[in-house]
Every structure is written in structure tokens, then in C-alpha cells.
């Protein structure tokens, strides 16, 4: 069993968490100028990084979305940050 760290609740069981999206994909704006390709890229495309990854995760039980940096091969957790702090 793996534990992840919610910035608000601390160490919790992996089953309480949900992977949302790879970090660093701002929504393209303004919408009238966004091509179908750009929109598809925003919705679906990613890198599936091997090794260090920065991802948005949801702690389902408390509802917090946060930024997690982890290694996708070894499963080591490198950091968990609140999105507000991370964007500063």
C-alpha cells in the first residue's frame, strides 16, 4: 500500500487519491481563437513522463486539488504542494 501526502490532511492511503492531469497545461484562451487541434491538445494530449512527473491530484475525501511531484518509475513522492502556493 502506498501513502500520498495531501497538503491539508497529511499522509493518507493511495485509495483516497485520484490522478487528475499532468501539470502545466493552462486552458487556451480566448475560446474564439482556439483551434480544434489546440483544444484537443488541451483536453487530451500529454507526455506520460517516465521518471520525475508534476501532476495535479485530487484528495477525494477532502476535495483538495494539489500539485504532486513524484517519480513514475520508483513511486517516490518528491513533494506535495497547494496549488495556490505552487502558482506563486
Amino acid at each position: 500500500m502506498q501513502a500520498f501526502t495531501c497538503p491539508f490532511c497529511g499522509h493518507r492511503d493511495e485509495t483516497e487519491f485520484h490522478f487528475v492531469v499532468e501539470a502545466g497545461k493552462p486552458r487556451p484562451e480566448p475560446s474564439e481563437e482556439v483551434s480544434d487541434e489546440k483544444w484537443a491538445a488541451y483536453l487530451h494530449m500529454g507526455k506520460a513522463p517516465k521518471g520525475e512527473a508534476r501532476e495535479i491530484w485530487l484528495h477525494i475525501t477532502c476535495g483538495l486539488y494539489f500539485l504532486m511531484t513524484r517519480d513514475t518509475v520508483t513511486r517516490d513522492i518528491l513533494s506535495s504542494e497547494c496549488l495556490l502556493e505552487a502558482s506563486e
Binding site: 500500500m1 502506498q2 493511495e14 485509495t15 490522478f19 506520460a48 518509475v73 513511486r75
Partner: peptide
């Protein structure tokens, strides 16, 4: 398993 990974092993849940 619900955690994206490149490690060829599964987890307990």
C-alpha cells in the same frame, strides 16, 4: 492500478 506509472509492478489495493 489507479496511479499512472512506468514501473512494471502492481500495488496492493
Amino acid at each position: 492500478d489507479r496511479v499512472p506509472t512506468h514501473g512494471q509492478k502492481g500495488n496492493l489495493p
